[in-house]
């Protein structure tokens, strides 16, 4: 089993939100809400202002809390790629997964069922995901989690997640 994931570099992200659009367009037929979102935070007052843009979708956690929180066992984790997906035939749209998710990834689609990033299910593995392909500054990189780990000087997922399983990689602590 291998675990694929996203690596995101906040220092490279310029907040252009192209990843959101690429995600929407690629997953057009199944997506009814934005699976990928760029959260932008501003802090401070003139002239000392700081900000950060964080592009987030489902992180396909190694130990997915949403999977454990689902009362219908509608969320499954793929053995081969580690992608976490929602089975819409089982989902009842109760949003407990969102309550459990550390990243706020699952969202209620217009059909009343939860939707989330499928790691571009219909793209063969080994090529770039839609969001990675579009990113003008290459702030998003996807791949096997072991390969991604070398980009990151410090894995901050432990600080944000319930456990430090190597399933998730997030952020890049400064120089």
């Amino acid at each position: 089993m291998s675990q694929y994931g996203f690596y995101f570099d906040k220092e490279k992200c310029v907040g252009c939100r192209a990843c959101e659009i690429a995600c929407q367009i690629w997953n057009d037929s199944v997506q009814t809400v934005k699976w990928r979102n760029v959260a932008m935070t501003f802090e401070g007052s003139y002239p000392d202002v700081s900000n950060v843009n964080v592009s987030m979708a489902c992180m396909h956690c190694g130990d997915a809390p949403c999977k454990k929180a689902c009362p219908r066992q509608a969320i499954t984790k793929d053995d081969e790629t580690g992608r976490v997906t929602v089975n819409r035939e089982l989902c009842v749209g109760c949003m407990l997964c969102l309550w459990a998710c550390p990243f706020g990834a699952p969202q209620l689609g217009i059909h009343g069922r939860m939707e989330k990033c499928t790691f571009c299910e219909d793209r063969p593995m080994g090529i770039k995901r839609a969001c990675e392909e579009i990113c003008p500054t290459q702030a998003i990189v996807t791949g096997k989690i072991e390969d991604l780990a070398k980009f990151s000087k410090q894995n901050v997922s432990g600080r944000l997640l319930h456990d430090e399983s190597p399933g998730v990689l997030l952020g890049h602590e400064g120089n």
Partner: peptide
């Protein structure tokens, strides 16, 4: 559903969570 939807404020909670993460990275 009534519990989950009310607590996640119909999805608003997702936005708050993402904002909190980005604040954490600031």
């Amino acid at each position: 559903a009534p519990l989950g939807r009310s607590i996640t404020q119909n999805g608003e909670y997702a936005y708050q969570k993402r904002q909190r993460i980005s604040e954490g990275l600031l």
